[in-house]
Protein backbone atom coordinates (compact mmCIF):
# COMPACT_ATOMS: atom_id res chain seq x y z
CA UNK A 1 0.00 0.00 0.00
CA UNK A 2 1.25 3.47 -0.85
CA UNK A 3 1.38 6.14 1.85
CA UNK A 4 0.85 9.86 1.53
CA UNK A 5 3.69 11.87 3.14
CA UNK A 6 2.87 14.45 5.83
CA UNK A 7 5.29 17.42 5.89
CA UNK A 8 5.75 19.82 8.79
CA UNK A 9 6.29 23.46 7.84
CA UNK A 10 6.50 25.73 10.89
CA UNK A 11 3.25 25.32 12.80
CA UNK A 12 1.47 23.65 9.90
CA UNK A 13 1.24 20.10 8.59
CA UNK A 14 1.10 19.97 4.81
CA UNK A 15 -0.31 17.00 2.95
CA UNK A 16 -0.13 17.08 -0.81
CA UNK A 17 -1.99 14.13 -2.28
CA UNK A 18 -0.18 13.22 -5.48
CA UNK A 19 -1.48 9.70 -6.08
CA UNK A 20 -4.78 8.05 -6.92
CA UNK A 21 -5.42 6.77 -3.40
CA UNK A 22 -6.89 3.38 -2.64
CA UNK A 23 -9.40 3.40 0.22
CA UNK A 24 -6.80 1.82 2.51
CA UNK A 25 -4.31 4.58 1.69
CA UNK A 26 -6.96 7.19 2.52
CA UNK A 27 -7.68 5.55 5.89
CA UNK A 28 -3.96 5.32 6.67
CA UNK A 29 -3.58 9.04 5.93
CA UNK A 30 -6.36 9.78 8.41
CA UNK A 31 -4.50 7.91 11.16
CA UNK A 32 -1.05 9.26 10.23
CA UNK A 33 -2.34 12.82 10.40
CA UNK A 34 -3.96 12.37 13.82
CA UNK A 35 -0.68 10.99 15.17
CA UNK A 36 1.38 13.77 13.61
CA UNK A 37 -0.91 16.50 14.98
CA UNK A 38 -0.42 15.18 18.50
CA UNK A 39 3.31 14.48 18.05
CA UNK A 40 4.09 17.94 16.62
CA UNK A 41 1.49 20.07 18.39
CA UNK A 42 0.73 21.76 15.08
CA UNK A 43 -2.39 23.91 14.97
CA UNK A 44 -3.03 23.80 11.25
CA UNK A 45 -3.40 21.12 8.58
CA UNK A 46 -3.40 21.93 4.89
CA UNK A 47 -4.54 19.24 2.49
CA UNK A 48 -3.60 20.04 -1.07
CA UNK A 49 -5.80 18.20 -3.58
CA UNK A 50 -4.57 20.05 -6.70
CA UNK A 51 -3.41 16.76 -8.21
CA UNK A 52 -6.67 14.87 -7.53
CA UNK A 53 -8.80 14.56 -10.63
CA UNK A 54 -11.72 13.11 -8.71
CA UNK A 55 -13.03 13.24 -5.15
CA UNK A 56 -15.59 10.51 -4.61
CA UNK A 57 -17.76 9.96 -1.53
CA UNK A 58 -15.04 7.95 0.20
CA UNK A 59 -12.35 10.61 -0.16
CA UNK A 60 -14.94 13.30 0.64
CA UNK A 61 -15.79 11.52 3.86
CA UNK A 62 -12.08 11.15 4.64
CA UNK A 63 -11.63 14.93 4.29
CA UNK A 64 -14.60 15.59 6.63
CA UNK A 65 -13.30 13.07 9.14
CA UNK A 66 -9.79 14.57 9.10
CA UNK A 67 -11.30 18.01 9.70
CA UNK A 68 -13.30 16.68 12.69
CA UNK A 69 -10.38 14.76 14.16
CA UNK A 70 -8.03 17.72 13.89
CA UNK A 71 -10.61 20.03 15.46
CA UNK A 72 -10.79 17.76 18.49
CA UNK A 73 -6.98 17.86 18.61
CA UNK A 74 -6.93 21.68 18.51
CA UNK A 75 -5.90 22.02 14.89
CA UNK A 76 -7.69 23.54 11.96
CA UNK A 77 -7.92 21.87 8.55
CA UNK A 78 -8.04 23.70 5.25
CA UNK A 79 -8.50 21.86 1.96
CA UNK A 80 -6.86 23.69 -0.93
CA UNK A 81 -6.55 23.40 -4.69
CA UNK A 82 -9.84 21.76 -5.61
CA UNK A 83 -10.27 21.64 -9.40
CA UNK A 84 -13.42 23.25 -10.83
CA UNK A 85 -14.58 19.98 -12.42
CA UNK A 86 -14.13 18.23 -9.07
CA UNK A 87 -16.20 20.88 -7.29
CA UNK A 88 -19.01 20.57 -9.87
CA UNK A 89 -19.00 16.77 -9.56
CA UNK A 90 -18.95 16.81 -5.76
CA UNK A 91 -22.02 19.01 -5.60
CA UNK A 92 -23.88 16.86 -8.11
CA UNK A 93 -22.88 13.71 -6.24
CA UNK A 94 -24.62 15.24 -3.23
CA UNK A 95 -21.59 15.57 -1.03
CA UNK A 96 -21.43 18.58 1.23
CA UNK A 97 -18.02 18.75 2.79
CA UNK A 98 -19.37 19.48 6.24
CA UNK A 99 -17.12 21.48 8.51
CA UNK A 100 -14.35 21.75 5.95
CA UNK A 101 -12.72 25.09 5.29
CA UNK A 102 -11.37 25.58 1.80
CA UNK A 103 -8.97 27.95 0.10
CA UNK A 104 -7.89 28.28 -3.50
CA UNK A 105 -4.21 27.52 -2.91
CA UNK A 106 -1.67 26.63 -0.22
CA UNK A 107 -0.67 30.24 0.36
CA UNK A 108 -4.25 31.36 1.04
CA UNK A 109 -4.75 28.29 3.21
CA UNK A 110 -1.78 29.28 5.36
CA UNK A 111 -3.15 32.82 5.68
CA UNK A 112 -6.52 31.43 6.72
CA UNK A 113 -4.98 29.26 9.43
CA UNK A 114 -2.79 32.11 10.70
CA UNK A 115 -5.79 34.46 10.83
CA UNK A 116 -8.08 32.06 12.67
CA UNK A 117 -5.29 31.14 15.08
CA UNK A 118 -4.83 34.81 15.91
CA UNK A 119 -8.57 35.26 16.41
CA UNK A 120 -8.55 32.26 18.75
CA UNK A 121 -5.68 33.65 20.81
CA UNK A 122 -7.12 37.16 21.17
CA UNK A 123 -10.57 35.88 22.13
CA UNK A 124 -10.43 35.80 25.92
CA UNK A 125 -12.63 32.74 26.09
CA UNK A 126 -14.06 33.89 29.44
CA UNK A 127 -17.44 32.60 30.37
CA UNK A 128 -19.59 35.07 32.30
CA UNK A 129 -19.90 33.96 35.89
CA UNK A 130 -21.72 35.91 38.58
CA UNK A 131 -19.50 38.36 40.48
CA UNK A 132 -18.29 37.08 43.85
CA UNK A 133 -20.79 37.98 46.51
CA UNK A 134 -23.66 38.09 44.06
CA UNK A 135 -26.06 35.28 43.80
CA UNK A 136 -26.99 33.98 40.45
CA UNK A 137 -30.60 34.81 39.83
CA UNK A 138 -32.52 31.97 38.46
CA UNK A 139 -35.00 32.85 35.71
Amino acid sequence: MERVPVLKIGDILLVSIQIDMSDQTALALQEDLAERIVATGCHGVIIDITALDIVDSFVGRMLSTIASISRVLDAETVVVGMRPAVAITLVELGLSLNGIRTALNVERGMELIAASREADLTYDGEVEYPEPGQTATSP
Binding site: D23, D53, I54, V55, D56, S57, F58, R83, P84, A85, V86, I88, T89, E92, L93
Partner: peptide
Protein backbone atom coordinates in the same frame (compact mmCIF):
# COMPACT_ATOMS: atom_id res chain seq x y z
CA UNK B 1 -15.32 17.11 -21.78
CA UNK B 2 -13.24 17.48 -18.65
CA UNK B 3 -16.33 17.85 -16.43
CA UNK B 4 -17.96 14.79 -18.02
CA UNK B 5 -14.76 12.76 -17.62
CA UNK B 6 -14.67 13.75 -13.96
CA UNK B 7 -18.33 12.84 -13.44
CA UNK B 8 -17.96 9.47 -15.16
CA UNK B 9 -14.79 8.51 -13.31
CA UNK B 10 -16.38 9.54 -10.00
CA UNK B 11 -19.50 7.47 -10.75
CA UNK B 12 -17.29 4.52 -11.75
CA UNK B 13 -15.39 4.81 -8.48
CA UNK B 14 -18.61 4.69 -6.44
CA UNK B 15 -20.00 1.74 -8.40
CA UNK B 16 -16.74 -0.23 -8.38
CA UNK B 17 -16.59 0.19 -4.61
Amino acid sequence: SLVDQTKLVTAASELAR
